[in-house]
Design a binder for these strands. Structure first.
Ligand SMILES: [Mn+2]
Ligand SMILES: [Mn+2]
Ligand SMILES: [Mn+2]
Ligand SMILES: [Mn+2]
Lengths: 221, 221
DNA sequence: ATTTATTTTTAGACTTATCTAAATTTTAAT
DNA sequence: ATTAAAATTTAGATAAGTCTAAAAATAAAT
C-alpha cells in the first residue's frame, strides 16, 4: 500500500504536529528525516496526491484524517513491538527502538492483533508512551517534566522526553524505573539542579537537563 | 547490508540450486521471481560484484560460500518466524508464509537468537522444513514422497512438497498432521491413487498428485 | 555444417527516492 | 516600501530496480 519511505514521512509529520505547531515546515521534516528540503518537497507532492497530507506550496503541511490514521497505526505497531521485545525477548529499553523501526512496517492485521493480545493489551510502551488501540484511539497521560516540580513534591515516573539510548542507559545506571516514586529533596537556584530520592533510596543529584527529560505525574496522596 | 531485493534473489537462487542442477539459469530465476530475464541479468552482475554469486555470462550462476551463508541465514529467519506465528500467535500453517516473507528481512542478530531460544531451538518449521542453526548448519531428513511407498507400508508424515495455502488447507480438511502415521491400504494401478488410513482412522482415497506432495519416512518397526 | 530456435545479454527507457545548485516565494529587517 | 535573509520549490542528475525491444550467444534440428 504505502512504501516504507512514505510511512516514515507520515510518522515524522505526525510527531512534528504532536510536539509543535499546527502546521509542519519542509525544513523541520528534512531535519527530522536527515534528508534535504528538496526531497521533502517531492515527497509532500506524492503524499498529497495520495490524500495523506494537506499541502499547499510554501504553506506547510498537516495530516488528513487518512494520514493521521495511517500514522497512528504505524506508531501502534512500533510501540507494541517495543513492548514485545522488552517483555518477551530480554531487550533493554535502550535497544528496542532500532528493531521496532523495522518491525513497524510489517503488514499483517492478524499479526498485530495477536501481538496486542499476546501482550495483554498494554496501554503504554517501555518508554511510557501511549499505545494507540486497534481503532487508533490514543490515551494520553497528563504527565509533565520533573523540572516543573518543587522541593518536597513527590511524583511517579511515567516516561521520558529524550529517547536516546545514551539517556536511557544513564537512567538505568541511576536506578530510574517507570513507576518509581521520586521525591525532590532540594533544588539549587543557580542551575535548577535537583537532589532527589528514588523509591526512598539514598538521594543524589541530577541536572536540570536530566529533570527536563523525565516525565512524571504528581503522586496522589 | 543487502537490500530486500538482493536477499530475495539470493534465496531464490539457493532454492533452485537445492532442488535442481548444479547451476541455475537466468530464466529459471526470472520465472521464480516473477520478473523478466533482463532484470535478472542486471541483478546477477550486482550480486557478482558483491561476491555473493559465481557468474559468467551465458554460463548460469551458483552461490559463493558467502552467498550460501547469506541464503541460509534468511531461510533460518523465515522458518523461525513461521514457527513463531504458529506456536505463539495462532496462525495456521497456510497463513504464515506471506508474513514470514516480510519478517525474514528484519536485521537484528539478537532478535533471531532470542526468537530461537523462545521457541526452544526448533529443528523443523511448521511445514516440516529444517531450520538452519545459528551457524548455518542444516539437518536434512531423508524423507520421500508418499507416492514412492507401497501397499501395507506404514510411514510418518514429515513434510510437504507443495507449500501452497490451498494444498495445506486440503491437508487440514483431510486431517493430515505432521507426525501422523499413514498406512497404505490399497493402490489403484491405473492412476496410482491410494487408499490410506491416517492414525488408524477410517481410510479414504487420495490422488497420486496428492501423494507426491506429502513427504514421509518409513515407520520404524 | 548450416539453419533455426531458444536463451541470455545489451541498449534505452521508466519509477522511486535521493541529491546539488539555481530560481522563486515568504518573512524579517531596515 | 525596499532590501536582505531565510525558507521553499524547481531543474537537472544519480542510483536501484524494473521493463520492452533488439542484438548476441548458445543449443537444437535438419
Ligand atoms: Mn521507539
Ligand atoms: Mn517507545
Ligand atoms: Mn514459507
Ligand atoms: Mn515453511
Amino acid at each position: 500500500m504505502h512504501s516504507f519511505t512514505e510511512e516514515n514521512y507520515i510518522k515524522a509529520i505526525y510527531k512534528l504536529l504532536e510536539s509543535n505547531d499546527e502546521t509542519v515546515s519542509t525544513n523541520a521534516i528534512a531535519e527530522r528525516m536527515n534528508t534535504k528540503a528538496a526531497s521533502v518537497t517531492d515527497m509532500l507532492k506524492k503524499l498529497s496526491a495520495k490524500k495523506l497530507v494537506n499541502y499547499q506550496k510554501y504553506q506547510g503541511v498537516t495530516l488528513t484524517a487518512k494520514g493521521e490514521k495511517t500514522a497512528l497505526n504505524i506508531i501502534r505497531k512500533h510501540r507494541l513491538w517495543e513492548m514485545f521485545l522488552v517483555e518477551k525477548f530480554n531487550f533493554t529499553w535502550d535497544e528496542v527502538h532500532d528493531v521496532a523501526e523495522q518491525l513497524e512496517h510489517i503488514q499483517s492485521e492478524k499479526l498485530i492483533d495477536e501481538l496486542d493480545k499476546f501482550l495483554n493489551f498494554p496501554k503504554v510502551d517501555p518508554h511510557g508512551d501511549p499505545i494507540p488501540d486497534a481503532k487508533g484511539k490514543l490515551h494520553l497521560q497528563k504527565s509533565k517534566p520533573l523540572s516543573q516540580f518543587n522541593i518536597d513534591d513527590v511524583c511517579v515516573i511515567t516516561g521520558v522526553v529524550d529517547h536516546s539510548p545514551s539517556f536511557l542507559r544513564y537512567l538505568d545506571k541511576q536506578g530510574f524505573v517507570l513507576g518509581n516514586e521520586i521525591k525532590i529533596k532540594d533544588m539549587a537556584d543557580f542551575d535548577r539542579s535537583l537532589q532527589i530520592s528514588v523509591n526512598k533510596r539514598a538521594s543524589f543529584f541530577i541536572s536540570n537537563d536530566v529533570a527536563k527529560n523525565i516525565l512524571v505525574i504528581a503522586k496522589q496522596i
